[in-house]
Simulated scan of single mutants.
Amino acid sequence: MHVLTNKPIGIFDSGYGGLTVFKSIAAALPQYDYIYLGDTARAPYGNRTFKVIHEYTWECVQWLFKQGCGLVILACNTASAKALRTIQQQDLQPAYPTQRVLGVIRPTAEVIGNYTSSKEIGVLGTRGTVNSESYLLEIEKFFPDVKVYQQACALWVPIIEAGEYDKPGADYFVQLYLDQLLAQSPGIDTVLLACTHYPLLQDKIQSHLPAGINVVAQGDIVAASLTDYLQRHPEIETGITCNGTKAFFTTSDDTADFDHHASLFFSAPVQSSFTPLK
């Protein structure tokens, strides 16, 4: 396999969803080099255990380090919820003390309270993200007066990855989970899409919600947070090369299938390479 000679920012997701975050990051910071890795051979991560998610995520992060990445973004809520803390606190220092790994939950929690007037937020995510209670804990730190209600949407990722997200059949399952969320409180005025797949359903989600409820995706939030992080950490920023390149890798050997799906999430043509993570 060809190893990149530049020093890109690494962006990781278990599958395709992280490309919605990558799209926003690349739009905000087009000058940098990027490498995206989707672990599609082992996706989805949402229903796996903490141990397995950490094992898979750390393996992918190390692969990105070996490609020259000094900074890796976990553009995956499940990995951010179940693997990031262990990677930051236990894994990095012994083997990669100068590299950094960031997630998408904390940047979102730092600002999401600014979107609500009623001080009630609904969080839609995978079962893994919801069960981790990461959003409850992180939002409490920054907005202790905001009430957070969660709803796991177990079937949304399969619907999206099957290419059915814009079909009439998806409407039933969108309405199902929204009804379950709103049944928890009539005061919810902000809904957070706490899965990077869900922006593909955003139009349907908005259409099935009562008027006045704000739907918030994470891409622009994470991009703004990364911009701020790099300004505050010049020791990291100066190590990133600036050729404006984007490389895409998948752990699935069916790169044509990956490229088809990835192009929908990235809103631009994608041409990927296969990596067995060795």
Rank of each mutant, 00 (worst) to 15 (best):
A262N: 01
P168H: 02
I87G: 04
E235K: 14
P107Y: 08
P107N: 06
A211G: 14
F266G: 05
P97I: 10
L226T: 03
Y115L: 04
A223K: 05
K82V: 09
K278R: 01
L102S: 05
L192P: 04
M1I: 10
Y135H: 15
I11S: 03
R48D: 05
A268G: 04
R85Y: 11
I160T: 00
C153D: 00
E140L: 10
I205D: 01
A95Q: 12
L37F: 12
F65A: 06
P199Q: 13
C153N: 02
Q67S: 03
T86G: 04
D166N: 15
H261V: 03
L230I: 12
R106D: 13
Q180H: 12
Q231W: 04
H54Q: 12
F265S: 00
K204H: 09
C153I: 02
K66C: 08
L226Q: 06
K66R: 15
K167R: 15
A154W: 00
V101S: 06
I121R: 02
L178D: 07
F249H: 11
G103E: 07
V148P: 03
L29W: 03
I205G: 04
V146P: 02
I159S: 06
F265Q: 06
G18M: 09
K204D: 06
G239L: 11
G122H: 02
R127Y: 01
T78M: 08
I112F: 03
N6V: 04
G122C: 09
G46L: 05
L277C: 08
P186F: 05
V123L: 01
L37Q: 04
P94Y: 11
Y135D: 10
T129H: 00
V216C: 08
T238H: 15
L71Y: 02
F142G: 06
A247E: 14
F258Q: 07
S118F: 01
G169A: 05
L37R: 07
S252T: 14
E110K: 15
L84D: 00
S273N: 13
G46A: 13
P44E: 10
L37P: 10
Q67I: 06
P97H: 14
S134K: 15
Q271P: 03
E120C: 13
Y96W: 13
K204M: 07
W156I: 04
I240Q: 07
V52R: 15
R106N: 14
V222G: 01
H260N: 12
Q93G: 05
F12Q: 01
D228H: 09
L4I: 14
M1Q: 04
Q184F: 03
P210L: 00
Q62K: 13
P158V: 06
Q62H: 01
E138K: 09
T108Y: 08
